[in-house]
């Protein structure tokens, strides 16, 4: 694992990730998740859907970052991920974290990405940072696959007061799946952006929209 990827996966990385629950807060508010045993399928499902999409684009972005792709390529990659993110609330959450990532890291390659889009999607920013640091697509893909699980897992501890050791055991149990997801992403890292896979998580899209609606009217502690 490349150290740039470790930095990005660290919950202490100041890229704004701590305020996002990946749909978990809304699921908790609806009573869908209230214990470690409901959290397990939520995390596994998220990893195989939203996590897989993020891994595919992080891998492709790392590939692009390594060869210092031009503005047009970054714009295309970002637009293709937008097209695979039907929920406006999800897009906003992803772009907020992408912008946060760029803010926290400075590198020439990232200037090209920022010129294409100052608020790129989060997986693209992560992939660009890893690629720009000579990290591999696998490092970037594994990072976002891990974050797809660790973010909501940490939110569950904070929102439900779950036992952090039990929650961490759930994360640990998903490690082989994270590698499977990352390997799948790596196979597509050099693919034309338009032909990249498009795994969907309709349930998470709907939760994100509901979260956004509710945060206008009632208490929500997370941004997404």
């Amino acid at each position: 694992m490349h150290a740039a990827a470790l930095m990005l996966a660290d919950s202490r990385f100041p890229g704004g990730g701590h305020a996002h629950s990946g749909g978990l807060e809304e699921a908790v508010a609806r009573g869908l998740v209230h214990s470690e045993s409901d959290l397990a399928p939520f995390l596994a499902g998220r990893l195989r859907t939203a996590g897989e999409l993020a891994a595919v684009f992080a891998g492709a972005a790392a590939h692009a970052g390594r060869r210092d792709a031009g503005v047009d390529h970054w714009r295309l990659l970002d637009a293709e991920l937008d097209a695979r993110t039907p929920s406006p609330a999800q897009r906003t959450a992803s772009r907020a974290q992408g912008r946060g990532t760029l803010r926290a890291v400075s590198h020439l390659v990232l200037d090209t990405l920022a010129a294409a889009t100052p608020r790129p999607h989060h997986p693209i920013a992560v992939g660009a940072v890893v690629g720009a640091s000579e990290g591999a697509p696998a490092d970037a893909a594994l990072t976002v696959a891990y974050l797809a699980v660790s973010g909501p897992a940490s939110a569950a501890v904070r929102l439900l007061g779950l036992d952090p050791f039990a929650v961490n055991a759930l994360v640990m149990r998903l490690i082989p799946v994270m590698h499977t997801v990352a390997e799948y992403a790596v196979r597509h890292a050099g693919t034309d952006p338009a032909d990249l896979p498009a795994p969907a998580a309709v349930g998470l899209d709907l939760l994100a929209e509901a979260h956004d609606r509710h945060s206008q009217k009632e208490v929500r502690l997370f941004a997404s």
Binding site: Q97, R99, G100, A223
Partner: peptide, 9 residues
């Protein structure tokens, strides 16, 4: 303090 991204946004 530790992660000021959202506030800077």
């Amino acid at each position: 303090r530790d992660d000021i991204s959202a506030n800077l946004d």
